[in-house]
C-alpha cells in the first residue's frame, strides 16, 4: 500500500477529534472518506498532510514512518494537499501560487512541464496567471488549489471538500479532474460531504462518523447499506 494509517488518534488540545482510524490508499486508487460535518474528516486529512501531528498510531507513506518526518518534509515524500477552503496565497498571483507548489528542488526541475500540464487542465488559469489569486471566482480558486498540488508532482493528492461552495456544473468538472489526476498516475484520497459524487468517483470508501470509521468497502456495497442510504442519501 502507498499510504497506510494504523489506529490514528488525532486531536486538538486535550480533546481527540479522531479515534483509532485505520485506512489505506493504494497506488493508482481513488479512496473517498465521507461523513457529516464535524465528523473529523478535515482533522484526518490534515494529519495525513503533516499539518497536524497525530498523538497515537502509525502513519506510513511508501514504507516511511511519517511520525519522524517534519511537517515541511511531507511534500518531499510525495504528499500534496488541496485544502478545505482552497487556502490560496491571495496576495500573490495565480502563477506564483502554482510556483509555490513546485518549491522543492525535485518538483522545481519539472516546473515547465508541470505548468504546461496545469494550464492544459485549466486553460482559464493561463489567461489569469498574473492576476491575484484572491480576485478569482470560487471555481477558479479551486483550480489554482488543485494546480498548486499538481505542481508538486505528487504521488498522492489529498482533496479536502473540493466541491464546497462551488456551482453544480463546476462540481462536475472538479470530479472529472480528480479522476484525471488518478489516471495521470497519482493516488487520491478524497474527503467529501457530497456523497453521491464522492462515491461515484471512488474505487473504495470509508465512512467517518464522530471521529471513528464506521464502515468501509466498495462504494456500491456501502451505498446498499440501509444506514448509509438513510443518513447520506435521505432514502
Amino acid at each position: 500500500m502507498l499510504l497506510e494509517a494504523r489506529h490514528l488518534h488525532i486531536g486538538y488540545g486535550d480533546a481527540p477529534a479522531v479515534w483509532d482510524v485505520s485506512l489505506e490508499v493504494g497506488a493508482g486508487e481513488i479512496v473517498s472518506v465521507i461523513g457529516p460535518n464535524g465528523a473529523g474528516k478535515t482533522t484526518l486529512i490534515n494529519a495525513i498532510a503533516g499539518l497536524l501531528r497525530f498523538r497515537q498510531g502509525e502513519l506510513r507513506f511508501d514504507g516511511a514512518d511519517m511520525a519522524r518526518v517534519k511537517p515541511h518534509d511531507y511534500c518531499a515524500h510525495g504528499i500534496a494537499l488541496v485544502p478545505e477552503g482552497r487556502r490560496l496565497f491571495v496576495k500573490m498571483s495565480v502563477e506564483e501560487n502554482l510556483e509555490l507548489g513546485c518549491y522543492l528542488p525535485a518538483a522545481r526541475a519539472a516546473h515547465d512541464q508541470s505548468l504546461e500540464r496545469v494550464y492544459g487542465l485549466f486553460p482559464i488559469l493561463r489567461d489569469k496567471r498574473f492576476q491575484l489569486a484572491g480576485e478569482l471566482s470560487g471555481g477558479q480558486q479551486q483550480m489554482v488549489a488543485i494546480g498548486r498540488a499538481l505542481m508538486a508532482t505528487p504521488r498522492i493528492v489529498l482533496f479536502d471538500e473540493p466541491s464546497l461552495g462551488l456551482a453544480p456544473t463546476i462540481v462536475d468538472d472538479m470530479f472529472e479532474i480528480i479522476a484525471k489526476v488518478r489516471d495521470d498516475g497519482a493516488a487520491v484520497l478524497l474527503v467529501e460531504q457530497n456523497v453521491v459524487k464522492a462515491m461515484g468517483v471512488a474505487d473504495r470508501a470509508y465512512v467517518l462518523e464522530q471521529g471513528r470509521i464506521v464502515a468501509a468497502g466498495l462504494p456500491g456495497d456501502l451505498l446498499k447499506q440501509p444506514h448509509i442510504r438513510e443518513a447520506y442519501l435521505g432514502v
Binding site: G50, F89, V90, A107
Partner: peptide
C-alpha cells in the same frame, strides 16, 4: 515567494515544503 507565502499561510506553505 516562499517568504511571502509563509507570511500569508505558514501551514500551507509548509505543506509545500517551505521551512519557515
Amino acid at each position: 515567494k516562499a517568504l511571502r507565502a509563509s507570511a500569508e499561510d505558514a501551514d500551507i506553505a509548509a505543506a509545500y515544503g517551505v521551512d519557515h
